[in-house]
């Protein structure tokens, strides 16, 4: 219980570090020195001190959206399995709630983007909602596979009962989850987090009009989302529980760090996919999860 609570606090504190790691990896690949690892903390601090500018077209959804998105993420943090595959709250069926909480977050993000009436943000929102159409079933198929494998219906129940013997299935599922992880967090083959002026961007363009504390919440939520979905991937890739809390904690944290490293490497080596190709990538993720399920059923 204590260790799980610690994990949640750790997630809340350390999540902004992940974008820092990713950016540092990218910088190293590009031969630059790069921003400091703690850059996002500085940004958040700066943004929180600032005031905000609102578009005259907006209503209160504009600023409720980011707040609600953050609150919902905090809720999903309660059920997501972290070190040792444990979570604070665990009940059969939390899988469904978990996925749907992300749906709520997306709903609010889209509504608050559309609130500005900007065609750029409309474009981003439209893409965000399109990718969910493919990502959500894929995520569910992955979870179904794991639920069948472990005969358990809660996320942490599933994640705490893996073993190395499930190799093939875990490999496929974690590959599928990694694809979903990249898409949901608007990382590179799907979305380029570096720019927001190009017409091809998704997440960054949706927050074009947000400023000050609202933008800080959005940045913070994005890094938290990276952490939460990252723990799903890490838990599936490293199904190892020594039983020793400190060891497991270290394994989990290094897993998360390694995942950020991997994201950085992917971002350095790959170009962004054409937008028309993104559904294809997500369907490939779906196919991987499906293969895992078929293996599991057979």
């Amino acid at each position: 219980m204590k260790s799980v609570l610690l994990n949640i606090i750790l997630a809340l504190i350390a999540a902004p570090l992940l974008p820092g790691i990713i950016n540092r990896v990218k910088a190293v690949f590009a031969g630059r020195k790069g921003q400091p690892l703690l850059q996002l903390y500085y940004d958040l601090h700066k943004l929180l001190k600032k005031s905000a500018v609102f578009s005259s077209a907006t209503t209160f959804f504009f600023w409720v959206g980011p707040l609600a998105g953050f609150a919902v993420l905090a809720g999903s943090l309660l059920v997501v399995p972290q070190a040792q595959g444990k979570s604070l709250v665990q009940f059969p069926g939390d899988i469904i709630l978990f996925v749907y909480l992300f749906g709520v977050m997306r709903f609010f993000a889209v509504v608050s983007a559309m609130d500005t009436g900007s065609s750029f943000e409309g474009m981003g929102a439209s893409r965000e909602i399109q990718f969910a159409v493919f990502a959500e079933p894929a995520l569910f198929v992955g979870l179904v596979t794991l639920a069948r494998k472990t005969a358990n219906l809660s996320l942490s129940g599933i994640y705490s009962s893996f073993s190395w013997h499930d190799g093939t299935i875990l490999m496929l599922v974690s590959a599928a989850f990694f694809i979903i992880f990249l898409a949901e967090n608007s990382r590179l083959p799907v979305d380029d987090p570096n720019t927001h002026l190009e017409l091809t961007m998704i997440h960054e363009v949706m927050v074009l009009d947000h400023s000050g504390p609202d933008l800080a919440i959005i940045f913070y939520s994005a890094s938290l989302k990276l952490w939460i979905l990252g723990s799903l991937v890490v838990g599936a890739i490293i199904p190892m529980h020594t039983g020793n809390i400190i060891f497991d904690e270290l394994i989990f944290l290094s897993g998360i760090a390694a995942l950020s490293l991997a994201v950085g490497i992917v971002e350095s080596c790959m170009a962004r996919l054409k937008l028309l190709k993104v559904p294809q990538l997500l369907i490939a993720g779906f196919a991987l999860a499906m293969l895992a399920l078929i293996f599991q059923i057979m």
Partner: peptide
Amino acid sequence: AFLLRKKILAGKIVRTAPTW
């Protein structure tokens, strides 16, 4: 979060501008 945001924005001038 709502209260915190309200507190942060309390003393500041919040401007309104056209959508960018």
